[in-house]
Design a protein around this nucleic acid. Structure first.
Lengths: 226, 226
DNA sequence: CTCAGTATGTGGTTATAACCACAAATGAGA
DNA sequence: TCTCATTTGTGGTTATAACCACATACTGAG
């Protein structure tokens, strides 16, 4: 294995806490293979299945959806050092619902995850599984939260759901959020100016006060307005 | 440990593939404790943290959200035999964003998950971690799909996203979906009659044909209408 | 077959969000 | 302090979804 790949792996969350020897053992047991792609190449196709996860060693890839009617949606970018398809690699009967496309010339390392579940109890196997669990569970929390926050049909409902979680996380009723207006709107899947307007109305209604990214929740007004 | 609890554990996805001896060892190592609740009792509070996951041995609980302004939202029911708070138990620094409330008299078994990561390599530890990973990754896939399908702002966009995934999963352009109209509407977070109307329009536009739960996608019309 | 109950579709109305254009506020740098 | 660029807010219009009432279609029990 090339030096720069070992370096990439050592700094990947997947191999956290593992010695270089363990990483080598893992890579060997997982029959890892490396492959190069040119910009625009399809790395994985929707409809296929895979038992291998990908690590972007250099370059970057996009995860996108192309439906039957020709609509294309970019779902996310994966930069060098990050993983993709780990969900599918661990559920090898599930067909991919997305395409993975090279965003620029890139080098991908594939790890066959079936080997992981078969190798009974090597030291590296336990650590790798634990790391995967950690990664998965974290993603899970993020997805659950976002799902909860974008479920309400009205902008107000979404804002309230979002601010409530931030309030719980900080333990305060006054806090700064890590988004500007445009980012908050994107996060909640609403239009920016509509969000601004709704925030204005909410302030008039005495539900909260805000200025830029600073928010203060005003529970006094028992406004059952979600 | 009581017999019925052992029974509950043996049939839980968390302990799949584990012998009774391993289950006992696990339960002992994880300092499991059992507790009874009456209807309406709070089992876990939003804002707290926990390092223990819960297994509902009997009865059922609801996961709900109560925000500062008094709005209450029921997020899910957990019936006997199922887990809750496994995400938080594995990320013990994350504060709960939901309340867990007894829906009826119930008995809960708590498993301290910190013990899992500390116990180096017992046979049961590896299996338990692998099972948790399986559970987590599956939930992950479900959440990702739903997130993708409810992200579009228009009903048509959501329907197209949903049907496209079903089509990929079945490998067909004609299929039955596992929902009736009301359920599909709830799943996509839209109103039932509005969904019916949109399906009517989509048929007029030649994008698809449907009758009850049977759908046929018509890719011919390259309708970039998501 | 009939009936009752449920599921689905449709018209009409209202509420809400998207969208567009632009003004006001803010912040960084000369 | 004075640009200039960026962010944020607001008015007005249009598109879309929610909502309500109801007609129609389907299903299962008798």
């Amino acid at each position: 294995m090339k030096d720069d790949i070992v370096y990439a792996l050592k700094h990947n969350a997947l191999f956290r806490g593992m010695t270089e020897a363990e990483i080598h053992a893992a890579a060997a047991a997982l029959k890892s293979s490396e492959k190069q792609y040119r910009k625009g190449d399809y790395i994985l196709h929707a409809g296929d299945t895979t038992d291998r996860l990908g690590i972007v060693c250099s370059g970057s890839v996009t995860i996108e959806s192309n439906d039957i009617w020709g609509n294309n949606t970019i779902l996310s970018h994966v930069d060098a050092g990050d993983l993709f398809a780990e969900t599918y690699a661990l559920l090898p009967t599930q067909v991919l619902l997305v395409d993975v496309v090279a965003n620029e010339p890139c080098r991908i390392l594939f790890l066959n995850m079936q080997g992981l579940l078969q190798t009974p109890t090597a030291e590296w196997g336990g650590k790798l599984t634990a790391n995967l669990l950690q990664i998965s569970i974290r993603k899970n929390l993020t997805l659950s939260n976002r799902s909860f926050q974008t479920a309400p049909k009205t902008i107000r409902g979404r804002v309230l759901a979002y601010l409530n979680t931030v309030s719980l996380q900080t333990g305060r009723e006054a806090f700064d959020i890590p988004f500007d207006r445009q980012q908050l709107a994107d996060y909640l899947n609403v239009e920016r100016t509509a969000l601004s307007k709704e925030l204005g109305r909410m302030q008039k209604d005495g539900i909260l006060r805000c200025r830029r990214s600073h928010f203060e929740l005003l529970p006094a007004a028992a406004a059952a307005t979600a």
